[in-house]
Design a protein around this nucleic acid. Structure first.
Lengths: 335, 335
DNA sequence: GGCAAGTTGTTTGAGCGTGACCATGGTTTT
DNA sequence: AAAACCATGGTCACGCTCAAACAACTTGCC
């Protein structure tokens, strides 16, 4: 890399003259500025980012910790984060916790050594189950701002970006009820997560509120080692009268649709399905799956904006929680 | 952040004593080492990574530039990159080119200012179409090593990780021929990419070699704005006798399967389908899609290994090209 | 005309946090 | 007393920015 020193030597001026010239300081004569700039351009001088970071104690880099990059939701949030960060002149460093508490802890430690100006994190399943928060508190104590998204912890006081999981599931269930569905099942492979629980509550609330809904709520939790397909087959066998499905994750709804079609069930005439999937599954379904759209890109964007605000304004202000609106996109699997 | 200076002040010793003590130098007495270490631990001292980088001119960070994080193949490669880099003590900085040449160029420039020790890149579609390489050459000239994966450029001399796209498509086509298929269609939504072209060639070669294959090759290219579903419907209408499909991307195969089933075509009895999809689509298909497995995680891992080797050994050695083996995983959509 | 005061353009120096290297002063050994 | 050793301190450099100092002029004023 070309340095100021090298430019200075070639031009027979001091380092700071070069520095000031490149910043177009009015302390420097126009001719000198021209000479310096010409050479800098010719040699393709670029200010060394590491040196700037050391001097300013700012890295212009954000640390991002996500549980699983193979989950399309997180990939999409990451997309939003990258886009917004780049737009604002920030780089991002990525760690994937792989749903492991230890990996998450290590990632925070590694990036906490001055590598980043702040963190955006969605916590690992293990962290959420064990309700571990010390590692995040520790980062906050070092005055490094943290923004949590989607999977947040109530015990940590920091900025957060969430969707209204309760409301989204409530609204989706209400829609199924309005269609006149009499036996609505909730499918979930995210039982352990905060968002999973909130969505279940939204579903339950909607059913409770509906006086003429006679059946009991049916909640099917699919755990990591269970076969989604077998579980759903079993569901259809056990409840042949099922006429509504709310899938609160991004896989089970699609599988439920395929299995229903295979059984000759008429979707949406005799069975409505709503999922929390993303548009990426749409080419694979027919009729097209109706979904709760979570605006993952907006979640990423909002997380960056909150974090940058915090980086600029400091840690003294009260924490903000931003709720990204969801909307119910009715397609072919609902009436 | 706690610094050596702060420790030194509290302990009433010099900065260099603290530094040496933390490195367990034998110039320092055991008691002092103990005292220093105790305080360092108590205050959670961590060496400032930026200062180390400035001093050593090494960042222990790798720059990763991928065209599209929402593509499951790239997400999976990224997973492998992250895992291997972390294992080797490196961080990664991510840029998403979004298939745009300009964004790719900017990313290289931004991270090339001393932020990273090397790059792992899969070039954008636009870059590949325009055959732009100057920006990458420019990075190489700065002695920053570059490893290209999957979408590589023949005109650039650097380490590369590829799969044997030609061979994989050849082998898959051969399999369809061995099943006795008489009219095999190739589906692609990656016509413009080097890998897409190689896969087409593998398909063509296999057909050419087969003397008793009478039909002409049929290649259906689906461009960005085309509807995959409409194109495939049209295909089935135009060629009712089609009995084999090779999809060289990760979407069209699944769609072709669904459309075939809907038409009542018996898969795999009267139609075989092989895709280049990843396992993530399997829950959504029945019968399960037979695929060419690309070992994306291994590609990521190999890219990191090649890059670290290059970082350690310098840029003088001849470039390496590593080919990751594919294998044909026969599932339910082939006989 | 002479000299302080201002103007202009540049250089010097300090410091960000760290570790390599060299220096110092005190004690012990030969 | 010279040599060796020990524990610690001091200095420098990495590349950069910024305040302060400085040199060489030009003005202004009596």
């Amino acid at each position: 890399m070309v340095t100021l020193k090298q430019l200075a030597e070639k031009l027979n001026v001091s380092i700071s003259t070069v520095s000031k010239a490149l910043h177009e300081s009015d302390e420097i004569s126009k001719e000198t500025i021209e000479r310096v700039k010409a050479l800098a351009k010719h040699l393709n001088y670029q200010p060394n980012k590491v040196a700037l970071s050391l001097k300013s104690n700012k890295t212009k880099t954000l640390g991002v910790i996500i549980p699983n990059i193979l989950n399309h939701f997180f990939a999409k949030v990451l997309y939003g984060i990258e886009e917004e960060a780049t737009k604002k002149g920030y780089d991002i460093m990525i760690c994937i916790s792989n749903e492991s508490y230890v990996k998450e802890l290590q990632s925070l430690e590694v990036l906490g050594n001055g590598s980043v100006d702040g963190f955006i994190i969605s916590i690992a399943e293990e962290t959420q189950i064990k309700d571990q928060t010390q590692h995040i508190e520790s980062i906050l104590q070092q005055d490094l701002p943290v923004v949590m998204f989607d999977r947040v912890s109530d015990t940590i006081d920091c900025d957060k970006v969430i969707i209204d999981d309760f409301g989204a599931a409530y609204e989706a269930t209400k829609h199924l009820l309005q269609e006149g569905r009499k036996q609505i099942v909730l499918l979930s492979d995210i039982e352990e997560l905060s968002v999973g629980k909130l969505r279940v509550n939204g579903y339950l609330k909607a059913l409770e509120e509906t006086a003429n809904y006679k059946n009991k709520p049916i909640i099917i939790n699919i755990r990591n080692n269970d076969s989604i397909e077998d579980t759903i087959e079993a569901l259809y066998n056990k409840y042949p009268k099922i006429d509504g499905i709310l899938s609160v994750d991004n896989t089970t709804g699609v599988v439920a649709l395929h299995k229903a079609l295979k059984r000759g069930i008429d979707v949406p005439k005799s069975l409505s399905i709503i999922g929390f999937s993303d548009e990426n599954v749409l080419p694979f379904t027919e009729p097209k799956l109706s979904t709760v759209s979570q605006h993952a890109i907006d979640i990423g964007k909002a997380s960056v904006d909150l974090l940058l605000e915090r980086i600029t304004d400091g840690t003294h202000k009260a924490s903000k929680v931003k709720t990204i609106k969801t909307n119910l996109v009715l397609r072919g699997t609902t009436k």
